[in-house]
Amino acid sequence: MSQTVDRALSILPLLAEGPASLAEVATRLDVHKSTALRLLRTLHEHGMVYRQDDQRYRLGSRLFALAQEALENLDVRGIAHPHLLALNEKTGHTVHLAVYEDGEVIYIDKVDSRYPVRMYSRIGRPVAITVAAVAKLLLADLPESERRVLAENLQYPRYTAKSVTDAAAFLDELTRARELGWASDLGGHEESINCVAAPIRGADGRVTAACSISAPNVVVTAEELLKLRPLILRTAEAISREMSGRPTPTPTAADEEEEETV
């Protein structure tokens, strides 16, 4: 990277801390005031910084507009799909990706299991919102007041003996999912199907999607499926990092050993 570009980019995180004067910018960059002024003027011309009436500089509106546009154009399905394929390859189980839209939790991607037994879920169809593991994670991230209103207005079908049947129990489930950072559905929708899910977070730290692995009892028990929780959590974290543009950490020996045992 050229020195000029490097210095110009260094101004942005500096101003993210708050408005700064020309002298403060020059000091932080360890450059002459004339150099700092040239860089600030260039950024100002492109709307990246703004000079206030008190002559201090702050981040410009164009920078925020670009950031918002970039976030809106992130394709979570496109980013997540290779990770979902890898998870399916490691486990052999059905993998789902879901989002919360207009009061419903919708599957937006699915990778089928390798065994003959197939799940009836479909891309584009809403999930059983009161029992699905992905739904618990997506709704748990809503503000408390919004969670309560939503819970009180839901219907609670008794799919199985393990289904959640009222708002209070459902809110307890959401609190548990929020505290644990993962969720499960162990026979709550279909007695023979178990599922464990993990949240996918955007650059702002909010849950934007959730991914899960599901399997029938005839293939693995609920206890065996729950042992795969580290894999689904790492998958969700990898997708979250890519969504946020964060670097991927180097796998530890423990991670590699754990994956070899799956």
Rank of each mutant, 00 (worst) to 15 (best):
I11V: 14
L137M: 04
S21M: 11
I200H: 00
D53H: 06
D204I: 06
M48C: 06
K136C: 05
E17R: 15
E258W: 15
E260G: 05
T261F: 03
L71K: 13
V111L: 06
V218T: 11
L154W: 06
H83F: 14
D141L: 04
E104C: 01
R147G: 05
V196S: 06
E179T: 06
E237Q: 07
L40E: 05
A67W: 09
P249T: 01
L14D: 03
V207E: 12
L12I: 15
T165F: 02
I106A: 07
E17H: 13
E242F: 05
P19L: 14
A168Y: 00
E104M: 03
D166A: 10
F64H: 12
S2L: 08
L63H: 03
K110Y: 05
L84D: 11
R58H: 04
A135G: 01
E257N: 12
V76R: 01
V49I: 05
A8V: 00
V95K: 09
E242L: 05
A198V: 11
T130C: 03
V131G: 02
A132F: 05
P19I: 12
A135D: 01
V219L: 11
S121V: 15
D185R: 01
G18Y: 08
I129R: 00
L87S: 07
G18M: 06
L231T: 04
A203F: 02
P143K: 09
Y107N: 14
L226G: 08
